[in-house]
Nucleic acid binder design. Sequence first.
RNA 1: UGGGGUAUCGCCAAGUGGUAAGGCAACUGGUUUUGGUCCAGUCAUUCGGGGGUUCGAGUCCCUCUACCCCAUCCA
Length: 763
Amino acid sequence: MEKKKDFLRAIVEEDLASGKYEEVVTRFPPEPNGFPHIGHAKAITINFGIARDFGGRCHLRMDDTNPMTEEEKYAKAIEDAVHWLGFEWDGPVRHTSDYFERLYNYAVELIKRGKAYVDSLSEEEIREYRGTVTEPGRRSIYAERSVEENLDLFERMRKGEFKDGEHVLRAKIDMSSPNMQMRDPLLYRIRHARHMRTGDEWCIYPMYDFAHCLSDYIEGITHSFCTLEFENNRAIYDWILDTLRLGPPRPYQYEFARLNMNYTVLSKRKLKELVDSGKVSGWDDPRMPTIAGYRRRGYTPEAIVNFCNSIGISKANSVVDVAQLEHAIRDDLNPKVPRVMCVLDPLKVVIENYEGAEELDAPYYPHDVPREGFRKLPFSREIYIEREDFSENPPKGYYRLTPDQPVRLRHAYIIRCKEIIKDDDGRITEIRAEYYPDSKSGADTSGIKVKSAIQWVDAATGYRAEIRLYDRLFRVENPQGPEDLNPESLKIIHKALVERAVIEEKPDERFQFERQGYFYPDPVDSTDEHPVFNRIVSLKDSWAKKSKRGEESSKRVPEKVIKTKSKKEGKKEPLGEEGRVAPLDKAQQEIFERYRRDLGLREEQANPLARDEALRSLFEAGIKRGAVPATLANLLLNEVARELKSVSPEELRYGPGELAELTKMIEEERISVKIAKQIFEEMSRSGERPEKIVEEKGWEQINDPQKILPIVDEVLTKHPEKVAQYREGNRKLLGFFVGQVLKETGGRANPQVVNELLNRELK
RNA sequence: UGGGGUAUCGCCAAGUGGUAAGGCAACUGGUUUUGGUCCAGUCAUUCGGGGGUUCGAGUCCCUCUACCCCAUCCA
């Protein structure tokens, strides 16, 4: 079972294969300042999952560098969540605070190297000095302090001689860096606060950027996976490890997109708001996307992990459909969980021709779930069915009980409605019915065909239960705040009825209440005396969908479109018109015209050459060496331009001479452009001349149709079904055949000739 | 506005110059004592737009556009 690899796994695999590391070591590094949610589950699944897949290890590290926000209870919740999800961390739970002493020493080292300084600017001044996104910052006057002075000050910071905010330690990097993060980032700040683990031992605390990379290094982490918003911080990560001259082996940071889900909020702030305002009952409210909430709701850890694995890993900011999570939980529960019966909105049915009572044998699992287990199901004259399962005036396509339509009571008999009893308001209070004695489930000789089987509960032996029907917490796809809450996210049903076995036998923790959904006894509120069941997730219901569709088509209510305002809305908009390229200046215009006139270049060739100095000088030099102008222009504009994206013009291992040579070979049809691309790769690796490369590699083009034809025929006979498809009109297959022929000839066959041959042979 | 990212079906997401994978959702039909499950099938002539290179481009080049991140002594 070779699973498709995501880009992180591809990196790890490559690093292991190349021998960069002997073993992969990852880490899950949450800050213990809140309860973990489904977003953390994704990070957990990635870090622990990758370690597991590659036989490596994964650490759990509490990133506790900010004593103001962190608490042990959160750390505990995080540990629980990881365990519950089924992962084991390597060694003890680690803490960034375990490394405070070593971190301090690294900071001293940085000072000694002249790479860090104590800054005494105020918070406001620091902000002001940092500049803006478009303007460079300027360096603090304190940046010029001597190493000795910095050492002294930093030590006194540690000793507690200063108040909060009086000094900070900063890295000396570059105040005019276009990357704002690199403008002398803060390394340490003074905080006279009690830390959840180190107490009052410290009054200076390292910042994330300083602590994280070094903690990774200290623990021997190889791959440090984090979310996209840290992309800009990677430069500091590398700067610190490099400046301290640490490793190799040393860790590298890679970023992936964090999880977003529709109808859900995952920001810590918004979640806290819901809890604090009492909109939900707590962090473990079953509607919350927290691990605690899902757990209380009845989600299984397997389902959550499966979900996390199903959504993939990429760098694209995306919003996963919550339906995908719901699918994961149904998919997990379906083959596992016993089926029992529950009636949410009971309607009494008296079976007039039934006397006494009996116990029916009823399997817990349907035919398609390979599990064993039965219960005795009490049946008697008075039962309850779901109010929805009877209709006096049934809509089209209604399968359940009606005055004219019999129905099967699941695991029991077929019944027929004889009489409807109503109260003074016209509300149905009871159905009088009769049953067919020869229609008993499993021994049905009645020959009566029914459209469906419905659930029911025996009146004498059923139990009262409270049922909590949960729906999505928000009613809009992209909720912003409490105003978007779904007022129907929780419906409590007090007088539901469940069959006896649910209470007395308890065949499992979770149940499917047939035709309703999956349910789980609330771990906090449920007791045998007062059972409470949470709906984990409903069953898919194609009838509800169909009947709703019928209603809507008669009403025709246009769906309200929820528009989310983007920050930039209201600002000028180009409105459909494509942006314009900046015009050429005078000198460029002259060159442009000369290339057009004297060398016969087309506009698309002349224009970019006129603009780009590096390419232009190569072009001019190439022409002097007799290059074919148009071909050279194309080579320059495509192949050389690509290489110039990663190396500077001086680093190019070939010059105009090689380029000119190449254009001539193409012109003479000695090589194809495809081969020319390979030659480029070879040239930039070895710096060899094109002629020599072609000679050594045997890359000379095959132009002779007589030599190519046999290969064409071979490919065609090898893929008879494809040939048939092609002849039926699948013209796209031509590319496939060309590809095969080219593969056979190592890319040497003249593709134009191959095309001609193929076209002829496939006629 | 400078820098760093990202754009492939309604939603995720493979894809590294040679036939646009897969899952979710949706929609048919079949099986069914759950309107569930399961099974079979349908659902991208096209990859943010425009140009270019190539026999051939989602993949290479140019350019434009949209969205996300960065100016906490948060992480």
